[in-house]
């Protein structure tokens, strides 16, 4: 080895598994500390935003599993979230079912719907599959609307705050603890699935179905598994959302919500689990960010009336920018930046 190490060589040295995992541990520890101390400094408003991000993370993780890893596109994500929320809401309203029944029931409903949503995937691919999930979205939303109208009242279904082991979960902090636990659990589940035999089958099916079949992978079963696991998790996220807000109303589950989740996994970085978190963070914070920016612009008063439109336009623009210029998302951006920084630090 010479004294002079070429920058590119150095970067490969630096990114070797040992140092990489050490850094991963460091970053994770830092993150863990931040997550633990956050509620002690946060205002209720900030806690609420954090809880929204955590809820979105669970939904994004499940979509990442389906689209990012198994390669099955879905435009019906909002429909599944609605299904979970309504399962929890209906059980609570009609049978007074507690939290620990509502959540698994939502998971079961989601799993069943996932099986149905997944059936077209056996015959259809790409765009056609996306369209079939879109159709199912409309049907779920229609059914939810009919139920809401049936039970009357325009305020949706009210759900009392849940209790766990005798503790009432009705403050932002309590929810924060519960949702952090939920997000970690969702992460561990998806992580395990991705690393398991099933996960490798996902990757194979994602790559080339015919080859996967030739390798002895049951393509149909793999696809359905992906749909069932993902949909079940999505529905649980929906049920958590319903409990968190204390009510369910069909108006909250528009097609735009599905698009937001797709944006999360694209912006985060498709095919990576941290990407789901980053995407959820980014998409949830974007409107608040824009509001702050607009408020500090000259002529803020005139813009205030159209902030919704500004949000919409900016959201579309950000999505386009990522799709065109950074298809590997924030995770890809981070990795590139990291590499550049490491080289920059070591070279002089």
């Amino acid at each position: 080895m010479s004294d002079q190490v070429h920058p590119t060589q150095l970067s490969t040295v630096m990114l070797q598994p040992a140092s990489r995992s050490a850094r991963t541990i460091f970053v994770s520890a830092l993150l863990a500390v931040a997550i633990i101390i956050f509620p002690f400094f946060a205002t209720p408003f900030h806690l609420d935003v954090a809880n929204q991000i955590l809820l979105a993370s669970i939904g994004a993780l499940s979509l990442m599993l389906l689209t990012g890893f198994a390669g099955q596109i879905s435009l019906g994500h909002a429909g599944l979230i609605a299904a979970g929320a309504f399962t929890a809401g209906i059980l609570s309203k009609e049978a007074g079912a507690p939290f620990w029944i509502g959540i698994p029931a939502a998971g079961a409903t989601g799993g069943l719907l996932g099986l149905i949503f997944g059936l077209p995937s056996l015959r259809l691919r790409g765009v056609y599959l996306a369209v079939s999930t879109l159709a199912l979205h409309f049907i779920v939303v229609y059914a939810g609307g009919e139920y809401e109208n049936l039970v009357g009242g325009s305020g949706g279904i009210l759900i009392p705050p849940p209790s766990l082991w005798g503790l009432k979960i009705n403050t932002g902090k309590a929810w924060y603890v519960l949702l952090v636990a939920g997000a970690i659990l969702a992460f561990l589940v998806t992580w395990n699935v991705v690393r398991s035999r099933t996960g490798r089958a996902f990757a194979a099916v994602h790559g080339r179905e015919t080859v996967a079949a030739a390798l002895g992978i049951n393509v149909a079963r793999t696809k359905l598994t992906a749909f069932v696991i993902s949909s079940s998790m999505t529905a649980i996220a929906g049920a958590l959302f319903a409990y968190y807000r204390g009510f369910v109303s069909i108006e909250a589950f528009s097609l735009y919500l599905s698009i937001q989740y797709i944006a999360m996994i694209i912006i985060g970085g498709i095919g990576t689990l941290p990407g789901a978190f980053l995407g959820a963070l980014f998409v949830t914070l974007l409107p608040y960010l824009i509001e702050t920016v607009v408020a500090h612009l000259p002529g803020a008063q005139a813009m205030a009336g159209s902030i919704f439109a500004v949000n919409y336009a900016a959201f579309g623009l950000v999505m386009i920018v990522f799709l065109v210029f950074e298809p590997s998302g924030l995770v890809g951006l981070w990795r590139r930046l990291e590499r550049r920084l490491l080289i920059g630090r070591q070279s002089p």
Binding site: T43, P44, F45, E251, A304
Partner: peptide, 19 residues
């Protein structure tokens, strides 16, 4: 502004009351 969305309305109410 809550844009007619329930979750934004909830967040606004939380902020206005507690902050």
């Amino acid at each position: 502004d809550d844009q007619g969305e329930a979750s934004k309305g909830a967040a606004n109410a939380t902020k206005l009351i507690s902050q």
